[in-house]
C-alpha cells in the first residue's frame, strides 16, 4: 500500500498513457484517435511535472518569492525543481503544434471524404 501511494504519480501517468494508447488503437473515429494521442502526451507531461514536484517546496526565485516560502528559499533543498516544468512548457507547445497540424489534416480529410471514420476512409482510398 505504501508502494502504491508512494508511486501514485507513476500509476496515474501510466494509466493515462494506456488510456491514450487504447484510444489511438481501438477507436475508429480519427478525432478520437487524436484525443487519445493528446491524452498520451499529457500523461507524459504529468509525469515530468510530478518528478519535479516537492511537498512544501517553493519557486526557485530569490527576489520577491511569493507566499509562505519566502524566508527559507535561500536553501536549495526547499526549491521545487523548476527544470521539468520548464521543459514541459516546451513539450506543451510541441503538443499544441502537433494537435494543430493533426486537426488541419483531419479537416482536409473530412472535406474530401465527408467522414472521419477510419474504415470508411480506407474503403474510399
Amino acid at each position: 500500500m505504501e508502494f502504491l501511494s508512494g508511486h501514485a504519480n507513476y500509476f496515474v501517468y501510466i494509466m493515462l498513457m494506456m488510456i491514450g494508447l487504447y484510444g489511438m488503437m481501438a477507436k475508429k473515429n480519427l478525432v478520437k484517435k487524436l484525443v487519445g494521442m493528446n491524452i498520451f502526451q499529457w500523461s507524459l507531461i504529468l509525469f515530468f511535472v510530478s518528478i519535479g514536484a516537492k511537498e512544501g517546496g517553493t519557486i526557485p526565485i530569490v527576489e520577491g518569492a511569493h507566499g509562505h516560502g519566502a524566508e527559507i528559499v535561500i536553501q536549495a533543498s526547499h526549491y521545487v525543481n523548476p527544470l521539468p516544468h520548464v521543459l514541459m512548457l516546451t513539450a506543451i507547445v510541441v503538443g499544441v503544434g502537433t494537435t494543430g497540424v493533426a486537426l488541419a489534416v483531419l479537416l482536409n480529410l473530412y472535406k474530401k471524404y465527408k467522414t472521419l471514420d477510419e474504415d470508411e476512409i480506407i474503403g474510399k482510398l
Partner: peptide
C-alpha cells in the same frame, strides 16, 4: 497524403 500524414502524426 492526408490519411498517410495522420497515421504518421499519431
Amino acid at each position: 497524403a492526408h490519411f498517410a500524414t495522420f497515421k504518421y502524426i499519431i
